[in-house]
């Protein structure tokens, strides 16, 4: 098999060249550059020249002691958790319902299309739309809630820290649960149908099938969803930036908005923004690493080990045969 005279391995390298070049030019170099800027005095609009600081970690210390940065980090985490947990639970529930062959929901196609829809709409538009919807004292949400008898008089949702954060969280949830659901459904449909038939024959009910067959087989897809959502969540920018401009009283200021404000407004402190970026980078790297480690497919790791062992044994056997023949 392997000794046919043509070496295909080189195509593996050739096909990866565009990716590697684009990565080096647009990702790797900017990362290195951002890191370097973090140690310098680069600030002021339109400036590109810099000198290194006497205390190289000065920017990092300043940022870590900055109240706004700490607040933004806290906000980001709160907003992510409060939208991701309901999001994944609802997505899983809908996935279980929509992939259940015994009790089909009519109009599934339409529901899927509708649930996914907010995700395709520009986040900037949605932020400003919700800002208008939550208008005070007259606004659609207030009018609606009063008509329905939920509240007696208009509430200024956007001036209260908790409700403002809650609304941002809700917008994120509302935009993303359909997306998560579609990814999960595609994952369930990718599971070998014979497994479901087998559990059916064994007499498993819907709930058992979901927890013992569907969920374990969804592990990779769940990992994918979790990681992308985490990274997206920690970089949340459009909604908090345009919804309430980070307010009230920094309650919806996320780290990305903080970084943007440092670098591209006021006194254009690229160096501090770069330091804050690097801190975020480290946090994201650690969190992703942990998730990856917890959720890695242990069977695959085991299989790989066995494969390597077998290959080694095969080689030994080949060598022995060759020696014997000689």
């Amino acid at each position: 098999m392997r000794h046919k005279g043509v070496n295909y391995a080189k195509y593996g390298y050739i096909f990866c060249i565009p990716f590697i070049l684009a990565f080096l030019f647009f990702s790797f170099y900017p990362i290195v550059y951002t890191t370097v800027i973090g140690f310098t005095d680069l600030k002021g609009m339109g400036r590109t020249d810099f000198t290194f600081l006497e205390n190289p970690f000065q920017n990092f210390i300043t940022i870590l002691n900055n109240g706004s940065f700490r607040q933004s980090l806290k906000n980001t985490i709160i907003i992510w958790i409060t939208n991701f947990i309901p999001q994944i639970l609802l997505a899983l529930l809908l996935t279980a319902w929509f992939t259940n062959n015994r009790h089909k929901i009519k109009g599934q196609g339409l529901f899927k299309v509708l649930f996914y829809m907010p995700n395709i709409i520009t986040a900037a538009t949605i932020a400003i739309l919700f800002y208008s919807l939550f208008g005070y004292p007259k606004g659609p949400i207030n009018d609606l809630f009063i008509t329905m008898g939920i509240i007696d008089e208009p509430v200024y949702f956007l001036i209260n820290k908790a409700t403002a954060r809650g609304v941002v969280s809700f917008i994120q949830f509302w935009m993303w649960y359909g997306h998560t659901m579609i990814i999960l459904i595609s994952g369930v449909l990718g599971i070998n149908p014979e497994i479901f038939e087998a559990s059916d024959i064994d007499g498993a009910n819907n709930i058992q099938t979901f927890f013992y067959v569907t969920l374990p087989n969804l592990r990779t897809i769940l990992l994918y969803t979790l990681i992308t959502s985490l990274i997206g969540g920690l970089n949340m920018y459009d909604i908090p930036k345009l919804f309430l401009l980070g307010g009230p009283d920094n309650a919806t200021l996320t780290t990305s908005v903080f970084i943007y404000n440092q670098a591209f407004s006021g006194s254009y402190m690229y160096n501090r923004a770069a330091a804050a970026s690097m801190i975020m980078f480290v946090i994201i790297a650690i969190l992703s690493g942990i998730i990856f480690f917890i959720m890695r497919d242990k069977d695959v790791v085991q299989l790989k080990k066995q494969k390597r062992k077998l290959k080694k044994e095969l080689k030994n056997a080949e060598n022995m045969v060759r020696r014997a023949v000689e």
Partner: peptide, 19 residues
Amino acid sequence: VMMIPAQVTSIGFYQFMYR
């Protein structure tokens, strides 16, 4: 590198493109 979001490297990216 999947973990690296564009936002985090944006300062270096901007400075590079500006140059």
